[in-house]
Computed example of a mutant assay.
Amino acid sequence: MTSATPPDASGVRVRPMRVADLDAVMPFEQQMFGPEAWSRQGYLDELADTELRYYIVAEAADHHLLGTAGLLTIGETAQILTIGVLPAARRNGVGRLLLRALIAEARRRRATEVLLEVREDNHAAQRLYAAEGFTVLGKRRGYYEQGRVDAITMRHPIQRHPIQGQQPQRQQPQRQQPQRQQPQRQQPQGHQVQRQSQSQNQESRQP
Rank of each mutant, 00 (worst) to 15 (best):
Q41L: 11
I152W: 10
V57W: 12
L99S: 00
R180F: 03
E117L: 06
S197G: 15
A69C: 05
A20Y: 02
G138D: 03
A4C: 12
T153N: 02
G42L: 06
A9V: 10
Q184I: 13
P157W: 06
T77M: 13
M1V: 10
L115M: 14
R96V: 02
R185T: 13
Q202N: 08
V114Y: 00
M1D: 02
V114P: 00
E132S: 08
R108T: 08
D49P: 12
Q79V: 08
R107M: 08
N201D: 14
G70W: 01
L72H: 12
R195D: 08
E59M: 07
Q176C: 06
G34F: 04
A111C: 09
A104I: 03
V14K: 03
T50Q: 14
R18I: 06
R18E: 02
T153C: 04
T82A: 08
L99K: 02
R15N: 00
E105N: 09
D21G: 09
E51S: 14
Q202R: 11
G165Q: 11
Q164L: 15
L22G: 06
G190E: 09
V19A: 10
Q164K: 06
Q171L: 15
T135A: 10
A9T: 07
E76K: 15
Q171F: 05
P207N: 10
A124L: 04
E120G: 13
P188N: 11
Y143R: 10
S39N: 04
G147R: 15
V94S: 01
G190V: 12
Q176E: 07
R90C: 02
Y143C: 01
Q41D: 14
E76N: 11
G70S: 05
G138F: 12
M26N: 02
H161F: 06
A131D: 05
S3I: 09
T68A: 01
G138N: 09
P168S: 13
T73F: 00
S204G: 07
A125E: 01
Q198N: 10
L81E: 10
M154I: 00
T2K: 09
M32G: 00
G11V: 10
Q31N: 14
P157F: 10
H161N: 12
L81M: 11
L65C: 03
S39I: 04
A131C: 04
G67L: 00
R13E: 03
A61P: 03
A131M: 01
T73P: 03
Q177H: 11
L98H: 00
I74D: 10
R40P: 03
E117V: 04
R148Q: 15
L137W: 08
Q176F: 13
R13P: 01
N92S: 06
Q174V: 14
Q187F: 08
E145I: 12
S39F: 04
H191W: 14
A88H: 05
G42A: 12
P178M: 06
L66V: 05
T50A: 12
I152G: 01
F33T: 09
Q206H: 15
T68H: 07
A48I: 08
Q167W: 07
A78H: 09
D23R: 15
Q79I: 10
A78W: 03
E59I: 13
E105Y: 09
R53I: 08
L86S: 04
P183W: 09
G70P: 01
G84V: 03
I158V: 07
L128F: 02
A106Q: 03
Q174S: 13
P188V: 05
Y129H: 01
T2H: 13
M17I: 07
L44W: 14
